[in-house]
């Protein structure tokens, strides 16, 4: 069996004492796996992704990423470099005025020199079929373009794992088809949240359903 990348050991998480989301949750993602995360709205799927990258901290339990237990903010700096999270709303993720700057933001934070960053930006955009988008203003992109650019921004960091939070939300069939092809061509292990059955069945190798704060294997 491949080595585990992300492991949850008995994770509890509550936003407030009367709003518990995860209860004794165990979870493991291994190299090469593509997992769909299913469940009704508000059941804690996004919370789980945010726990992985340390935007939220568990009330109880251990989060283990890349073979190390992660606790404090500095522990998660490395995690965030190697795990790419695609947010639900692309407007939250794209905050630079132009596309090139947005895609460059991650690599620049990693301390890469400007010339290399420029190369990474061009390569990443090209790999997603976004040639010539460098100087487009992010405000003026369409919904589908915004989603692809935010994916480019995540991929520019060359992550080992991808966490995709409803990447198909609000997109038309043609864009979903394009996105599906692109993601299928990526080598990374990934977790995807989606309410679109045909989307996740085509994309993933297994599916987990979240019920009462824990995860259960879903039989297709």
């Amino acid at each position: 069996m491949n080595e585990p990348l992300i492991q949850f050991h008995n994770i509890d998480f509550a936003y407030s004492p009367d709003r518990t989301v995860l209860r004794g949750c165990n979870f493991c993602l291994r190299q090469g796996e593509r997992v769909a995360l299913l469940g009704p709205n508000g059941c804690g799927k996004t919370t789980l992704l945010h726990l992985i990258v340390g935007l939220l901290r568990p009330t109880n339990g251990r989060v283990e990423v890349f073979g190390k237990v992660r606790r404090g903010e500095t522990d998660f700096h490395e995690v965030r470099r190697r795990v790419g999270l695609l947010f639900q709303d692309a407007d939250d993720q794209l905050f630079c005025p132009t596309v090139a700057e947005d895609v460059a933001f991650g690599p620049l934070n990693l301390g890469k020199p400007r010339d290399e960053v420029r190369l990474i930006v061009a390569e990443t955009l090209k790999s997603l079929g976004l040639n010539g988008f460098e100087h487009r203003v992010t405000n003026h992109l369409s919904g589908g373009e915004k989603r692809l650019v935010s994916l480019a921004a995540v991929l520019a960091m060359r992550p080992d794992v991808l966490l995709l939070d409803e990447p198909d939300m609000g997109l038309d069939d043609a864009v979903i088809e394009r996105l599906l092809k692109l993601i299928l061509g990526l080598p990374q292990a990934l977790i995807v949240i989606s309410h679109n059955r045909s989307f996740w069945t085509e994309l993933t190798t297994s599916a987990l359903e979240m019920r009462e704060g824990n995860l259960f294997v879903q039989v297709p």
Binding site: R80, F105, N109
Partner: peptide, 9 residues
């Protein structure tokens, strides 16, 4: 949060 995920410190 999105900025932090991309290594903003």
């Amino acid at each position: 949060a999105a900025m932090k995920c991309r290594g903003f410190t």
